[in-house]
């Protein structure tokens, strides 16, 4: 393994850029993601930065149960993110549709129908610590030695 790769690994492990997209949630999970930014959980001490810009993101947090308007647009956002990239489903909604997954509701879960989802954080909403540990555990799997693969 080259020294250059070592440097890349070290930098990437301390610089994870996150974008989140709400594809039709009740806002509960968005609030928990917000709580991760607050001093109590302090996501930036792990080198995770939330920008909400897919062009510079490494991790996409998908929140919500995919409403019809999002069906064709979720893929667009995913395609805008440069490689290496990873999508994490936050909450029950992108996994199963949660309480909206019943007759007569306008939702098209799961999110994995539209983009590849690498990790799922169940919960309604999940705790900020659960979101944090999911991002931290999935990031090295995707970004470490990316060029060597």
């Amino acid at each position: 393994m080259s020294i250059l790769q070592d440097i890349k690994n070290a930098v990437r492990s301390r610089s994870i850029h996150v974008a989140y997209v709400d594809v039709g949630s009740c806002n509960g999970c968005d609030i928990e993601v917000l709580a991760c930014l607050a001093p109590r959980y302090d996501i930036e001490q792990y080198g995770i930065y939330v920008h909400n810009n897919p062009r510079e993101a490494d991790v996409l947090l998908v929140i919500g149960s995919v409403t019809p308007q999002w069906v064709d647009k979720l893929r667009d956002i995913w395609d805008k993110i440069p490689e290496p990239k990873v999508a994490v489903a936050i909450g029950n909604c992108p996994i199963s549709g949660c309480v909206y997954n019943r007759r007569g509701t306008l939702t098209e879960p799961p999110a994995s129908k539209y983009i590849p989802i690498a990790a799922e954080v169940p919960g309604c909403p999940p705790r900020p610590t659960e979101i944090l540990s999911a991002i931290l555990s999935v990031a090295p799997l995707i970004f470490k030695d990316y060029e060597e693969r």
Binding site: N92, I95, S96, C98, V99, P122, G123, C124
Partner: peptide
């Protein structure tokens, strides 16, 4: 109980 469905 099925996590991913259960809302706790």
């Amino acid at each position: 109980i099925y996590p991913g469905h259960c809302i706790r």
